[in-house]
Amino acid sequence: MNQTRRTFLKGSMATGAVAVAVGAGLLTPQTVLAAWPKAAFTAKGVDGTMSALFGGAKATDSKDIKIKAPDIAENGAVVPVSVTAKQSGVESISILASSNPSPLTSSYNLGANTEGYVSTRIKVRKTSKVIAVVKANGKLYTAKKDVKVTIGGCGG
């Protein structure tokens, strides 16, 4: 992030300590969207994660979310997952693995002009459900997919 800040400061015409403070305080990316949600990443169990992440709002099952993940993952350390959400106004996509010590793997905050699509690779400890939670227009939608893991992804 610092490099970005440097670029910004270099590119801006503003000088002086006040301008620097404003630039550093208000325009760093961290403040544009929420800070790293520690509670959500350390919460135990799917329910705990959901309440830490979304404050207990209920998610409804949706057929408009497609999760692409292998039925059987040979190596739990690298499980490719992609999520496509057909809803309009998708704000965020979170990917959870239900039997991990802390289910939340990653959470994508999508800006206004993005497609409801993310693809990544996650670790899954043992056979579990991969859960995608999509926030669109302030509402939560969810979909699940079973992934069977033959070698776990956590621990050595």
């Binding site: 949600p37 693995a97 939340l104 999508l110």
Partner: peptide, 11 residues
């Protein structure tokens, strides 16, 4: 446009 929060369970 996109901000990703990652936890330890990303490969």
């Amino acid at each position: 446009v996109i901000k990703v929060n990652m936890g330890i369970a990303v490969s």
